[in-house]
Write a protein that binds this DNA or RNA. Structure first.
Lengths: 145, 145
DNA sequence: TTCCTTGCAAACGATTTGCATTGGA
DNA sequence: TCCAATGCAAATCGTTTGCAAGGAA
């Protein structure tokens, strides 16, 4: 985490009237380091400091409310978190149906533009206000093919 | 639910050594009728017959194992189900970030085609073999806007 | 001092499971 | 008859919350 991002996150939290404590820094660092979304239980292991789960949940809730991390509901009854897009960049997921591996894909600008257009036209004049989109591509990775 | 689909589902279940009981028919019918994925609790309301939740969960588990319905993990701590695509057709989801409601959207053919093209080009020559895709559009529904 | 933060334990809500009963082929 | 299906209640599991103690500004 560079200093500038660090300061940006702090400002973001301050706007919510909360502090960027060492505990919260550690949680965010662990998420940035991670290969993919992590659950509270996984972070509990990653951080391994006897940090109680309730504290992890509270840290995650605070970071989520400030828009620093976003929840990911991919798995049965489990919420995993990852850094928000302004920290990690906009991307999509390629999921292997066989081994379950999830990989990030960043689309080239012109494809991302086309995708945006599809989304906009898809909701049409339905009154729904689009905030974001997420494309999941399912199939088999090279190894499992 | 047409008779032919009905028979197809029955065969699918029979292959798993289970029966297509009236209860399970009712659950599937409710899902087919619904505009989008439904949770066990929502089905409990939809069906309103004092059908115990545990039975609903068991019916859903059986239908899922047979590939007749598919789980959808869009919302915090909640699993919703919908008919598998071979029953309901290919579609995408619009999710309201405020109230959690999920609605189906079927893209007009030319948009679906564009989306396919984006997907194909996105994986490029990575060796990943595409099997399907799913687009989730996030934002706020008219009511929550 | 005044809030924000944390730990601990209890509370919760969604989902699952054990067990005895019912029902269909 | 035999095994699957069901209902009920208790058990699980991930997550949230009340409350009292600890810390930073």
């Amino acid at each position: 985490m560079t200093g500038s991002i660090d300061r940006q996150v702090e400002a973001q939290l301050r706007a919510d009237g909360v502090r960027f404590t060492e505990r919260r820094r550690a949680v965010l660092r662990a998420l940035v380091r991670a290969e993919g979304p992590r659950s509270a239980a996984e972070l509990h292991t990653d951080l391994d400091r006897g940090i109680p789960l309730s504290s992890l949940y509270r840290s995650l809730a605070v970071l989520e409310a400030a828009g620093v991390v976003v929840p990911h509901h991919g798995t049965r009854g489990l919420t995993r978190y990852e850094p928000a897009e302004w920290l990690s960049g906009h991307h999509h997921h390629v999921v292997c149906a066989a081994c379950g591996a999830v990989e990030d894909v960043e689309l080239p600008p012109e494809l991302e533009g086309e995708l945006q257009a599809v989304v906009t036209r898809a909701v049409g004049g339905s009154g729904f206000s689009v905030r974001g989109h997420s494309l999941e591509i399912d199939g088999r990775c090279r190894r499992c093919a």
